[in-house]
Structures are given as structure tokens and as C-alpha cells.
Amino acid sequence: MAQWNQLLFQDAASPIMTQLINLHDHALTIMILSLSLVFYMLIYLMFNTLSCRTLLEAQEIETIWTILPAVILIFLALPSLRLLYLMDEISHPSMTIKTIGHQWYWSYEYSDFANLEFDSYMVPTSDLSFGEFRLLEVDHRMVIPMQTEIRLLVTAADVIHSWCIPSLGIKLDGIPGRLNQITLSCNRPGIFYGQCSEICGTNHSFMPIAIEVINFQSFSKWVSLFNN
């Protein structure tokens, strides 16, 4: 969950988000080193009273500052492409959940279970209980088991929506007439919040997403209670 005055990412709750944070730190380190080097060279040239004609016209220097940025881009591109393919890979999902965006609420369908589907609306501020978050709490959370690979299918019934959970590293557009899929996996229990990140109308900011991650035994009990 995000905190006030927070400058960094939310705590990672999935392997993909952990990799995204590592990639961010890797790119930020390279950027700081590059900026420090350029800043040092600028300061040195500003206060340098002597100029070396041979240095300013040397072909070796031009070769270095042409090849070096290309090498830096390779160090940025390779881990980025690796993570991009990991995010798109769906190997052996244990279950499938279909998410449908409406104006302005979400519907969830558990395809592997009979008659397990429900709508998820935001809880009004006047109905919130103590400790619940304003504009983030819903009446029916999407419940999933932890440490389980889940295939998430996202679409929309009216306009384009976007299903986004920052702590899980997931953001997927729901487009009417199209099914987009992504893998979903969470490595620890908890309640994780998100919001529609596509401007979908006047109540765009009032269709939050809440995921409750529990162990597999509790999930089996939840499924049986829901069907009863």
C-alpha cells in the first residue's frame, strides 16, 4: 500500500514487480553515473584556462564518445527486453479469471468454477468502516490464492478501461471486443489496491480494484462458501 510522501515504488508483491524495481535501480545507477561524468566534464571545461588543440581535434576522443553511449544503451536494452518477454510469458496457469470493465465498476468471472462471478463496486465514503481506504475499498474483492500462476483475461463492455495493480506490476488495457491476457502471481498474502488508469468517463476515479490474496486452503473454503 502506498504511503504519504512516498517517493519510491510500493513494496513488491509479485516476482514481476521485483524484477521491475531491480530494472529501475539498474537504469537509475547508469543514469547517475553518466550524468556525473558529463557534469564533471562541463565543470572542468568551464574552469580550464588551458586548451589543448590536439585533444579537442583527436579522432580517438570522438570515437570513444560515439561508441560509449551505444554500449550504455545495450546494458539498458538487454535486461529490459528480458523482462518484457517474462511479463508476456504464460506457461502453465492453474486458473483463469476474466475481468470486465464497465462504466464504472468491474466484473470478475472465475472460468474454472461453476457460477462464480460477481460485480465489484466502490464502497461510498459514508459506508466505510474504520481502517478502510477512501476511494479504494470495494464491496466484493477479487480473491486469489498466493503462489499460484493465474491467467488474467481483461476486456471491457463499453469504453476502454485499464486494470492496474502497482504492487503486482500489472497494467493491462480492457478494450471492447478484444481479450488481452497477462499472467498474475502473488508471493505473499495481503490486500492490494489499484485503480482504472484509463480516462473512461466522469466516474473514472471511482472504479477501484481490490485483490485479496490468501493461502490455497482459505481460497478453497471461499469458493465453497461462495457457491453455497
Rank of each mutant, 00 (worst) to 15 (best):
Ala27His: 04
Arg188Pro: 03
Thr99Ile: 10
Leu56Tyr: 09
Phe216Val: 13
Thr66Asp: 13
Asp88Glu: 15
Phe133Met: 12
Tyr40Gln: 05
Pro176Val: 01
Thr202Asn: 03
Pro124Ile: 07
Leu81Lys: 10
Val38Ser: 10
Ser91Thr: 10
Trp222Lys: 13
Glu109Ala: 09
Val159Met: 03
Pro145Lys: 08
Leu73Gln: 13
Lys171His: 08
Leu168Cys: 14
Phe113Lys: 00
Asn187Ser: 15
Val123Ala: 06
Phe216His: 13
Leu225Tyr: 02
Ser220Asp: 13
Leu68Phe: 12
Leu50Val: 04
Asn115Thr: 08
Glu89Gln: 10
Leu86Asp: 15
Ser224Leu: 11
Thr183Gly: 15
Ile191His: 02
Val213Phe: 03
Ser167Cys: 06
Gly201Lys: 12
Cys164Ile: 01
His140Leu: 10
Leu35Glu: 12
Asp139Thr: 05
Ser126Trp: 05
Trp163Glu: 11
Ser51His: 14
Met95Pro: 12
Phe39Val: 10
Arg82Gly: 01
His204Ile: 04
Ala157Tyr: 12
His102Ala: 02
Asn228Cys: 10
Glu212Arg: 02
Thr99Met: 07
Met146Lys: 14
Tyr121Arg: 01
Ser34His: 08
Val154Met: 01
Gln19Met: 11
Cys200Ser: 11
Thr183Cys: 14
Met31Lys: 11
Asp112Trp: 03
Ser220Phe: 09
Trp4Thr: 15
Asn5Tyr: 05
Phe39Lys: 06
Ser126Arg: 03
Val223Gln: 06
Phe113Gly: 00
Arg151Tyr: 08
Arg82Ile: 06
Thr18Tyr: 06
Thr54Leu: 15
Glu57Phe: 06
Gly201Asn: 11
Phe75Gly: 08
Ile97Arg: 00
Phe113Ile: 02
Glu132Ile: 00
Leu23Pro: 00
Ile209Ala: 01
Leu136Cys: 06
Thr54Ile: 15
Arg151Ile: 10
Asp173Trp: 03
Thr96Gln: 03
Thr125Ser: 11
Pro189Ile: 07
Ile100Cys: 02
Lys171Ala: 08
Ile211Val: 09
Thr63Asp: 15
Gln6Ile: 05
Ile43Lys: 07
Pro166Lys: 03
Asn187Val: 13
Gln195Gly: 04
Asn180Glu: 01
Ile160Lys: 01
Asp127Arg: 06
Ile211Gln: 02
Ser218Asp: 15
Phe216Ile: 14
Asp173Val: 04
Pro208Phe: 04
Leu152Arg: 03
Glu60Pro: 06
Ala114Arg: 13
Pro79Val: 02
Ile209Lys: 02
Pro166Phe: 05
Asn48Glu: 08
Ser126Glu: 11
Ile67Gln: 10
Gln59Trp: 12
Tyr108Met: 12
Leu81Ile: 14
Asp25Asn: 12
Asp158His: 15
Ser14Met: 10
Thr183Asp: 15
Leu7His: 09
Arg178Gly: 03
Asp25Leu: 10
Val138Tyr: 05
Ile16Asn: 02
Leu179Ser: 09
Met146Phe: 06
Ser120Gly: 07
Pro69Met: 01
His24Thr: 03
Asn180Gln: 00
Val38Met: 14
Met95Tyr: 05
Ile191Gly: 02
Leu116Gln: 15
Tyr44Glu: 08
Ile32Cys: 04
Trp163Phe: 13
Met122Ile: 08
Gly190Ile: 05
Leu8Gln: 13
